[in-house]
Design a protein around this nucleic acid. Structure first.
Length: 601
RNA sequence: GGGGCCGUAGUUCAGACCGGUUAGAACGCUGGCCUGUCAAGCCAGAGGUCGCGGGUUCAAUUCCCGUCGGCCCCGCCA
């Protein structure tokens, strides 16, 4: 049944044949997308990476080829020799690129068969993702998945070409590297040659790219795999890819302009889009005030308003109490949307707010002169008046309130804002809005660890004029960090780094890191900083997220060839898995895991 | 660590709230017919560990508990 390829050479891709190829004798190879057997004439849609072409077999033409074709099933791999000819006028297919022509088969070779498929090789399938991942090799045959990976290739190609042109040098850094405190949980790799010691997979090439600047490479880049052992999300994988670069003798604007140039190139080459540069910039403070998040989706309004001032002394204890405890009150007014929201939906929103950590979600619905709300009875006339003015409350509006500590209010209302934006179709899903968020605080106070931690990372430079504040008012220190946001998604973040060891030491001190530990964990960088480190800075862009956005895909998994599930497993390879005891012995590793209770028969 | 949703032919779902004869449908698959289809069409047929374990019950796909797996979210992700 099966034929060898023999001396057949592919002459063309299925998907690249056109009317210009008429009368040519061609040899095409690919997968059987579908077969339509009319008893006499047989049609086969043959698919390869470039597309689909129709093969026609007629028993009155070459009986042998036709007889083979009769046996063929979906997703078999076949090779066909035949002549490209016009389709009859009434059977042109405008839905495929090759729809003007067909290949009239003289000879067919069956190169491989296929089992019956677990799902159809089509774009619009409704299948459990687990099954798609288990049969990822089939899932990736679907045009939409193929397009995603081609898009990804296009993005990487464009990034490389841009960076090469700008004088960046691609340098690899090791996967087997050193575990460092701060940041995410490390993936560890045991060392056989140093029993009991471990490498860590890099969370990013951060320290080594800084080292390359100290070495004088001036401009470095890398399409870098990074590893973080944290819980997964729709936009987070334990291993992911960054477009990572670093530049010497620069300040913020140099890096920002380079990113704008690179993203312009990527959007142009990968999607044919012209994007406006420079991108607008917004301070962290303003982003938190207006949107409640440091990665605001600026495709729509529906901004938050801080109304704390008017309720400091309110009789309404939910509001005034929150302020007394150091909290704030913020509101967002969904203008004119009250009639569109059912009571059930409002209740669902309240439940959603609670799942995000809010104690509740107050709301006021404006209907004519009347305010329908569970809270109006607690509000004084002056409070009502002030609220009406501040929030511009008019007939048909519905306003939501959160009162709590600032972090809770902001995170809850920013999530509510996004949900309402989607619910009311306020978001232009076809477009892209770019934004730089700048002027981040350098530090935040971690109340569980009772110390300051970096908002960006410990190598981020404070603003030069704020260095002295490190010792006196650490929370007032602003950093030289910048995040690039597209459609509310954090696509990348970077900073001008600390290039002097005296300032780096001050930073570690502000973080409350033990000097001995610092030397042990970061000593290599401190040493390097002592040997003529130039001022430098850079950024890393999340390739997976960028491609997800460009592809308009709901999940990062759709732009990664072999992604992990939420539990970090790969259903295709079945990693992670147990290993041989002998392997563990070589590594001096003993597994301390509770044995599963064996059922006795 | 926590919250929510889900798991029934190869696939997507219905059946479950209200436990009861043979667990249905569509697509896919198999066989037959069919010479211009392109999601071909028409006819016939096969196909089930109702995720797994336990409990309640005369009786469990259905109710309860646990567990495994998948998805979304909080925490976490410098």
């Amino acid at each position: 049944m099966l034929d060898f390829l023999g001396d057949w050479k592919r002459s063309d891709h299925c998907g690249s044949l056109r009317a210009a190829d008429l009368e040519r004798l061609v040899t095409v190879m690919g997968w059987v997308q579908s077969k339509r057997d009319h008893g006499g004439v047989i049609f086969i849609d043959l698919r390869d990476r470039e597309g689909i072409v129709q093969i026609v077999l007629n028993p009155e033409h070459e009986k042998a080829a036709w007889e083979i074709a009769e046996q063929i099933k979906d997703e078999w791999v076949i090779a066909v020799k035949g002549k490209v000819r016009n389709r009859p006028e009434e059977t042109l297919n405008p839905n495929i690129d090759t729809g003007e022509i067909e290949v009239f088969a003289d000879e067919v070779r069956v190169l491989n068969t296929s089992k019956v498929l677990p799902f159809l090789i089509e774009n619009e399938i409704n299948v459990d993702e687990l099954l798609r991942l288990k049969y990822r090799f089939l899932d990736l045959r679907r045009p939409v998945m193929k397009e995603n990976l081609l898009l990804r290739h296009g993005v990487v190609t464009a990034a490389r070409s841009f960076l090469n042109t700008e004088g960046f040098i691609e340098i690899e850094t090791p996967f087997l590297t050193k575990s460092t405190p701060e940041g995410a949980r490390d993936f560890l790799v045991p060392s056989r040659l140093s029993p009991g010691a471990f490498y860590a997979l890099p969370q990013s090439p951060q320290l080594l790219k800084q080292t390359l600047m100290i070495s004088g490479f001036d401009r470095y880049y890398q399409i870098a795999k990074c590893f973080r052992d944290e819980d997964l999300r729709a936009d987070r994988q334990p291993e992911f890819t960054q477009i990572d670069f670093e530049m010497s003798f620069v300040s913020e604007d140099d890096v920002i302009e380079t990113v704008e140039g690179m993203l312009s190139t990527i959007f142009k080459k990968a999607r044919g889009l012209d994007i406006p540069v420079p991108f607008p910039r917004m301070s962290y403070e303003e982003a938190m005030l207006r949107y409640g998040t440091d990665s605001p989706d600026t495709r729509f309004g529906l901004e938050l308003e801080d109304i704390s001032e008017a309720f400091m002394k309110s009789e309404f204890k939910v509001f005034s109490g929150a302020i007394k405890r150091g909290g704030i009150i913020k509101a967002l007014n969904a203008k004119g949307k009250a009639p569109e929201l059912s009571r059930k939906e409002i209740d669902d929103l309240t439940e959603y707010a609670q799942s995000l950590g809010a104690k509740g979600l107050a709301w006021i619905r404006v209907q004519g002169a009347e305010w329908q709300s569970p809270i109006t009875k607690f509000l004084s006339e002056s409070e009502t008046k002030s609220m009406k003015a501040t929030l511009n409350m008019e007939d048909g509006d519905i306003v939501f309130f959160a009162a709590d500590e600032p972090a809770v209010v902001n995170s809850v209302l920013s999530s509510i804002r996004l949900r309402l934006g989607k619910r009311f179709g306020m978001i232009d899903t076809g477009g892209f809005e770019f934004l730089w968020v700048v002027d981040f605080p350098l530090l935040e106070f971690d109340s569980t660890e009772h110390r300051y931690t970096s908002i960006h990372h410990p190598f981020t430079s404070p603003k030069e004029e704020h260095i002295d504040l490190l010792e006196t008012e650490p929370l007032k220190v602003l950093s030289r960090a910048y995040d690039v946001i597209i459609n509310g998604v954090e696509i990348g973040g970077g900073s001008i780094r600390i290039h002097r060891s005296d300032i780096q030491q001050k930073m570690f001190k502000a973080l409350g890191l033990d000097e001995e530990e610092v030397t042990e964990k970061f000593g290599f960088l401190l040493t390097a900083l002592d040997y003529g480190a130039p001022p430098h800075g850079g950024i890393a862009l999340g390739l997976d997220r960028l491609v997800t956005l460009l592809a308009g895909s709901p999940s990062i998994r759709d732009v990664i060839a072999f992604p992990k599930t939420q539990k970090g497993s790969c259903p295709y390879t079945e990693a992670p898995s147990a290993v041989e005891l002998s392997q563990l012995l070589e590594l001096s590793i003993k597994v301390d895991k509770k044995e599963e209770k064996k059922e006795s028969a």
